[in-house]
Design a protein around this nucleic acid. Structure first.
Length: 789
DNA sequence: GCATGAAAAATACCC
DNA sequence: ACGGGTATTTTTCATGCG
């Protein structure tokens, strides 16, 4: 019998010494099914030591009776390692556990130089070798099995590979459940050892919502109700916010304390921690939205509320947010408890709304990278690229290197030009799209094409990088070139298809999400190449890409000069030039011919402002919008007040060209500030905690504020952001920083905000026009007097 | 002992 | 736990003066 299914998730089960791969899927009729593959075995490779024949290793294995009881197959394979041919011994085993037990023995034989690919996870190995990718459709021969006990699915099948990919570009209707949890503590942060869960709010993709709370009940029945609801609804995806790092652990511990089985998966098991720190819920995808917020760099303080607001989600927007520090107070106050209940429900709704916006992307990312959705979500960008490479490596016959510790040696990056200070009119921004990926393709830069310095290779067979002299074989195409070409052409095809589709239609959403996911991965390949943690790290590979990048920009600069085009600025892959249309067209043409890479017009600024600083500018577009780049406005570590004032100053200068008006605005704002007629919120400075508090070498305000929170029973982890204000008093500011929710507007040091927050960002801009803002602020009364005449 | 300026630490941006 | 280049603030430290 043939069965078509959409691949949701995969896990491994050991059954009576026989490894089983369990594939969770959804069939064409919407049945939730479990497919079991009993025919896959783990394996690894041995590279023989120099002057050792692969056969010698095989003989040695065969002479070990005990070992042979776990070995299924031994064969010699022609493979490559960093592009160089090697004869490797492939050892196929009965079960994954046996691999771990016996790998050391191979190294002890004295015949084996390297053991490789024993560190590839069994389920990932399975997906790669069976050519399966999550979130797509396949068809396979199956035989129906009796239901596995304790497994919640409509049917269970034994599969007989191969799997045939189906050309179906739609997603089955997934059942999604979003939830939010409120924990109660009167003394600082709730800890599961001590503090109960008081509210769990749930909402489902078919519109049902439910709230369980300690309102007149006990925690045991609250958690039990939650579990029953999950099992009853039987979601494919369970979504939440900070669930991987926080709420699953909390639920697990509270459930254990109350003697409740937290069986929220499709088997009778509780969630468990898995790769990259994500929580795995068997048979379902556990989606933590926190894993996706980093893709939106504009969101500075990473709260669920800010995430929803950024995505234009209005649910609960009209209701005041409640700070976690206030939860206990709200719960204990009968008049406020309803607000907390409402807030918790709103959080669940927000989770569901965000899922609606990012799920397509998440699925496409899983599909492209080739690992399950929850696994890919919590994987850092480098690991995403690496899974793609591991899959591709198999096609290349390229062995997957081990991850090794390496020492850091810096190398040169992109070239940044010093901007011409001041206001410039009519400036075109030209840039090389995907410069590094295209350079890597053009010069075949790859770990498997790199030619080591001593190697005797004729010069006509290699590309030689400028400045650094690294060499790369012109042929055959390297693994980077191959995946980059595939990614870029796939994206181009998608973008063509998108043009013929209705914006917002299901296919449009799917293809758009896919092209975005492809873009993210494409742009991450260079970063991967220069990452010390990369399995395929070779410093000259990354170094060559940037060297060619600098060469390209330098050449572009020279060509501009030859055409008499005035260059204002440039950074890595862009040049800002005066917009003389004829000359610009000519430049684009010459660059294409001479450099073989495409320089394209990106945008034209009616006006653009540069201070003397690199990486900071503000440009006015034709439609009246402004681009703010690098300035304090776009930074998360300045008080809102400073950012608002700078934004207004830039608006006035770029749109009205009136530095005097800008100055007056600042003076006026400062006088308002002096009267404390600004919300405290606008004076809060948010800064990240980047490491454990005790590892800091110098005193700093946000660290002191964090210490105050820790004293009050809160836990601060690396990655958290602390919001503080500077209060009046004497001494260095780190002694006067306190968490913002412990301060009132009367406490703040207004002079600090004026001179250290408001003034510097606007001064840098105004001084270009000869406006002395400090004087304007100190001689205010005199100035007003003079202005009167 | 203290003012001063350079260096170091820390953060967050750009591409 | 993807790269290097850069701006900026605040703290820390060395230095020279008296």
């Amino acid at each position: 019998m043939r069965k078509a299914f959409w691949l949701l998730d995969v896990n491994y089960e050991a059954r009576d010494g026989c490894p089983e791969v369990w594939i969770w899927g959804i069939d064409r009729e919407g049945m939730r099914i479990l497919l079991i593959d009993r025919g896959f075995r783990p394996y690894f490779y041995c590279i023989p030591k120099e002057k050792t024949e692969p056969r010698e290793i095989i003989e040695e294995v065969k002479s070990n009776r005990e070992l042979m009881s776990d070995v299924v197959e031994l064969e010699v394979c022609k493979m490559r390692y960093f592009g160089k041919p090697v004869d490797a011994v492939k050892v196929t085993y009965t079960r994954p556990e046996a691999v771990e037990e016996h790998v050391k023995w191979f190294l002890k034989t004295g015949k084996v130089d390297k053991v490789l690919e024993d560190d590839i996870r069994f389920t990932a190995r399975y997906l790669i070798d069976r050519d399966l990718r999550p979130c797509s459709w396949y068809e396979v021969e199956v035989e129906e099995l009796e239901g596995e006990k304790g497994v919640k699915v409509d049917a269970v099948y034994l599969v007989k590979p191969p799997f045939k990919p189906l050309d179906i570009h739609e997603t089955p209707a997934l059942k999604i459940l979003a939830f939010s949890v409120v924990c109660y503590s009167t003394v600082g942060e709730p800890v599961p050892k001590r503090d109960p869960i008081v509210i769990i709010s749930l909402i489902t993709s078919d519109g049902k919502s439910e709230q369980f709370s300690l309102n007149g009940g006990d925690e045991k029945s609250l958690i039990k109700s939650f579990v029953d609801f999950v099992r009853g609804f039987d979601p494919d995806i369970i979504a939440g916010y900070a669930t991987n790092s926080k709420y699953w652990d909390y639920l697990i511990e509270r459930a254990a304390k109350n003697g409740v089985n937290l069986y929220v998966g499709r088997t009778e098991t509780i969630p468990h921690r898995s790769v990259y720190g994500h929580m795995s819920v068997t048979g379902r995808i556990n989606l933590d939205l926190l894993d996706y917020i980093d893709e939106f760099g504009e969101i500075k303080v990473k709260t669920l509320e800010n995430f929803a607001e950024f995505l234009g989600i209005s649910e609960g927007g009209e209701v005041e947010s409640i700070d976690e520090m206030e939860f206990a107070r709200y719960w204990d106050d009968p008049s406020k408890r309803p607000k907390l209940l409402r807030f918790s429900m709103d959080r669940a709704r927000r989770v569901m709304s965000i899922v609606d916006k990012i799920l397509d992307y998440s699925m496409q990312l899983a599909n492209i990278v080739g690992i399950p959705m929850d696994y890919v979500g919590s994987a850092a960008v480098g690991f995403r690229v690496e899974w793609l490479l591991i899959r591709e490596a198999r096609r290349f016959g390229e062995l997957v290197p081990k991850r090794v510790e390496r020492r850091y040696f810096p190398y040169a990056g992109g070239m940044v030009l010093t901007p011409k200070k001041g206001l410039h009119e009519n400036i075109a921004v030209l840039d090389f799209k995907s410069l590094y990926p295209n350079i890597m393709i053009k010069y075949n830069i790859s770990p498997d094409t790199y030619v080591e310095p001593g190697a005797d290779v004729p010069e006509e067979k290699v590309y030689v990088a400028p400045e650094v002299g690294h060499r790369f074989l012109k042929e055959p195409p390297g693994i980077y070139k191959k995946i980059l070409e595939d990614l870029i052409s796939a994206r181009d095809e998608l973008r063509v298809k998108l043009k013929s589709l209705a914006v917002g239609s299901p296919s449009y959403r799917l293809y758009d999400a896919r092209q975005k996911a492809i873009k993210v991965i494409t742009n991450a390949v260079y970063g991967y190449a220069g990452w010390l943690g990369a399995r395929w790290y070779i410093k000259p590979v990354a170094e060559a890409a940037t060297a060619w990048g600098r060469y390209i920009i330098r050449s572009t600069l020279e060509l501009s000069k030859e055409l008499g085009l005035n260059v204002i600025y440039g950074d890595t892959d862009s040049v800002f030039v005066e917009y003389d249309e004829a000359k610009v067209d000519k430049l684009l043409d010459i660059v294409r011919k001479k450099l073989g890479l495409e320089l394209r017009p990106d945008k034209v600024y009616v006006r653009v402002l540069f201070t003397e600083a690199k990486k900071r500018y503000c440009g006015l577009l034709k439609d009246g919008r402004l681009d703010y780049v690098g300035f304090e406005i776009v930074r998360g570590d300045w008080a809102e007040a400073a950012k608002k004032v700078q934004e207004e100053v830039l608006k006035i200068i770029l749109k009205e060209k009136s530095p005097d008006k800008a100055r007056d605005f600042v003076v006026e704002y400062v006088s308002q500030l002096r009267e404390r007629k600004v919300p405290l919120k606008d004076l809060v400075i948010w800064k990240s905690i980047t490491r454990p508090i005790e590892e800091y070498k110098v005193n700093a305000p946000h660290i002191e504020a964090a210490k105050i929170l820790i004293d009050k029973g809160w836990t601060i982890y690396p990655g958290d952001k602390v919001g503080y204000v500077i209060i009046s008093g004497s001494g260095p500011i780190y002694k006067r920083a306190i968490p913002y929710n412990l301060a009132s507007i009367e406490d703040v040091d207004i002079e600090y905000y004026i001179w250290k927050q408001i003034v510097p960002p606007v001064e840098r801009i105004l001084k270009i026009f000869g406006v002395e803002i400090k004087q304007a602020l100190t001689h205010r009364s005199l100035r007003t007097l003079l202005d009167a005449y």
